[in-house]
Design a protein around this nucleic acid. Structure first.
Lengths: 233, 233
DNA sequence: TACCACCTCGCTATTTCTGGGGAGGGGAAA
DNA sequence: TTTCCCCTCCCCAGAAATAGCGAGGTGGTA
């Protein structure tokens, strides 16, 4: 692994990351290696060895919203084998069939990665082989994959400092309180009562938080505060 | 490193993590090894080799709010040497002096880690030595420290009672659409327009989703859908 | 076949939230 | 010291969301 990780660590720019993903694929002799960034605003980009056709189809169809790999990893910290995900829904099965038809392997292993402000990304290795071979391979290279995932995300954050420019504005304690209780389902009147302040005051906090978060309404503000990890509910 | 990481991977329970941190300290011959879980609700716990006095003082004084290591790492993805943090404010300097007086080393290296739902933790190694020695040591063990940090957090999340134990009812596709656009800040009228349905219909979806999620209002429903990973925004 | 979940559309009345204005006191930092 | 942000309180009108009632069509499953 060592020389492979060295190469990745020295990569500069997206094109170099793309080249690194191909090197990693060849080094480990797997079908595909993909790094996929998903933004709290819904933006996404990535690099990897999937075919252009599949990548375009994925973006065009907005498969982000039904991809069980995304949905499953978003709720976990642990790296996960695709077999352990939930493929039971109808949309998931059609998605899976289409993915395999586009050359994605029947086996996969994905490492979720999170950065500041709710940044979320996935590092995935996919391959076509039987279950036993795959289990042995992932067991043997689990640590390598975690380090590679980590390094990919480091590089991606370096190249994209403008992804979350000054929107990373922190909320004041009272604003955090307000957002938290709103996310818990309290009405404005209830929040104000809970915090022992007037509803008018509370409204100032909500408006201020909304402004800082660049949100269009309260629901949007709470959603952004959550996805940026500013509140935990 | 190998046997050390093996030991950590087999740890069961907080006491075992505590023991593992002491083993790691002895293995690398550093002064302190600490894993520190923080969530923005204010809860925190951790394990490590700091003295009880310092730990109690830290909690009692709520140093969480002024600790430059916390503040700095919360905005980064990269592991960071303490020297690169901002120690310029007055409260930071008094905090630093007190920490050193309590046996915390003058050098430190911290790895930020993030999990689902805004979970945040730090893995820190601290030591007393000159800058050059420390730089060499951290360069040599950077990858080890990342893997150890990752493993610590895996264990910690395992011990932590799951945030969504109850299998929440899945949302229908239209309900997911509705929740997603609402989380993106669209008003009901805008969502209805985007989905090309009447606002009345949209309202049915929102109410239905609210019922399924056990939510008291739209904001609550969106918050729950997000924290359960039913929508990705 | 009957049932159920899903998708689509309609009405009225009430409650709640939003968007404009204001004002003053306190604390930390430059 | 001045500046800036945070916390607190107030009014009002218009916009938006909620609660309650209703209707019919589709497609899959028991």
């Amino acid at each position: 692994m060592e020389p492979i990780l060295e190469g990745l660590e020295q990569a500069e720019g997206l094109a170099a990351l793309q080249a690194a993903s191909e090197e990693i694929r060849d080094h480990y002799r797997v079908d595909h290696v993909v790094y996929h960034w998903v933004d709290s605003a819904g933006d996404q980009y990535g690099c990897g060895t999937y075919s252009d056709v599949w990548r375009d189809r994925y973006l065009e169809q907005n498969y982000l919203r039904i991809d069980p790999v995304i949905m499953g990893c978003f709720q976990r910290f642990h790296p996960v084998d695709w077999k352990r995900l939930d493929w039971s829904s109808k949309s998931a099965r059609t998605f899976q069939a289409e993915a395999i038809a586009h050359g994605v392997g029947n086996q996969g292993f994905s490492v979720p990665i999170r950065g500041p402000n709710g940044q979320f990304a996935l590092f995935t290795v996919s391959h076509s082989c039987d279950d036993k071979t795959w289990a042995e391979w992932t067991d043997a290279h689990r640590r390598d994959l975690i380090l590679i995932a980590h390094t990919f995300n480091e590089k991606a954050l370096d190249f994209e400092p403008d992804r979350a420019p000054e929107q990373s504005q922190a909320l004041s304690p009272r604003e955090v309180d307000a957002m938290t209780f709103l996310a818990m389902g309290y009405s404005r009147a209830q929040v104000a009562d809970t915090l022992s302040i007037s509803e008018h005051t509370l409204r100032v906090y909500i408006e201020s938080a909304r402004f800082k978060l660049g949100a269009m309404n309260t629901t949007h503000a709470v959603a952004r505060a959550m996805s940026r990890g500013l509140i935990v509910v």
